[in-house]
Design a protein around this nucleic acid. Structure first.
Length: 256
DNA sequence: ATGGCTCTCGCGGAGAGA
């Protein structure tokens, strides 16, 4: 089973690009973030032609998450309880074979001085609380977390410390989530690698290696035990056949 | 120094992203 997470930065603008990636990688379960599309406008037919069905929690203009599958999946949850005012940012499905799969689009925060920053921290507290309420054994929590866990995960290294995405408070929230029994699947396999999942569109950041690793596949022990490989698919941060990429690369893992 | 792009909404330019 190949599972993936990808912030696609606008679903309708990315459809042809997403098709190229689905055909190249043939994932079974994909968590998308930043649909920027209302639930009712989701192009189900486009994905049906490729063999996929989608569970969608969208909204107009911003945010929005979906779970795309070509295996059996049942919807379990849309929205983080208590945080509806902060956008469509969470969806959970039960995947055939007993895998609970959740994808999230965590708030950005903008800057440590901005009003969004304390709200980002509170949103994480809500996620932590919500996450502890399931009794499932094999669970994946994936998405765009908008937090750089360690200096190794930032092109700025320790120079980034204290800035947005790199603060002690954000890292405490991320650690608290991990302490519920989650493992970062990529970091588990590659403890020393510096690999990024996001690069700014501006200033040639991709080619200058100015990136951040903020997109994660987190798994419980049962998911970790099943993991064979994890790939941050940076080829799909590049233009493909003249089509513009998202500013995030897909991240996928193969589970047995 | 802020911002260099790209998206949405909607038809011009503003807001958001990280």
């Amino acid at each position: 089973m190949r599972i993936a997470t990808w912030n696609i930065n606008g679903l309708r603008a990315r459809l042809d690009y997403i098709k190229l990636w689905l055909e190249a990688r043939q994932p079974n379960v994909v968590g998308f973030q930043e649909l920027k599309t209302p639930t009712d406008n989701f192009p189900h037919e486009f994905f049906a032609d490729l063999g996929y069905t989608a569970l969608v929690h969208g909204q107009k203009s911003w945010n929005g998450v979906a779970i795309l599958t070509n295996v059996d999946a049942e919807h379990r949850q849309s929205g983080l309880p208590g945080e509806d005012d902060w956008g469509a940012r969470l969806i959970t499905a039960e995947i055939e074979g007993g895998l609970e799969f959740t994808t999230v689009y965590c708030p950005n925060g903008k800057s440590v001085e901005h009003d969004d920053y304390p709200n980002k921290l509170r949103w994480y507290d809500s996620l932590h609380s919500h996450w502890q309420q399931s009794g499932h054994d094999k669970r994946i929590l994936c998405g765009d977390f908008n937090i750089v866990p360690t200096p190794l995960d930032s092109w700025l290294g320790t120079e980034g410390d204290g800035g947005i995405f790199h603060t002690v408070e954000e890292r405490q929230r991320f650690t608290a989530l991990m302490d519920t029994g989650l493992t970062d699947l990529y970091r588990h396999l590659y403890p020393e690698e510096q690999a990024f999942s996001w690069w700014d569109y501006r200033g040639g950041a991709f080619h200058r290696k100015h990136g951040l690793r903020i997109d994660f596949l987190l798994g419980t022990d049962a998911a970790v035990a099943a993991t064979q490989e994890v790939v941050i698919d940076r080829d799909f941060r590049k233009k493909q056949e003249g089509l513009t990429a998202s500013d995030h690369a897909p991240v996928y893992a193969d589970l047995n």
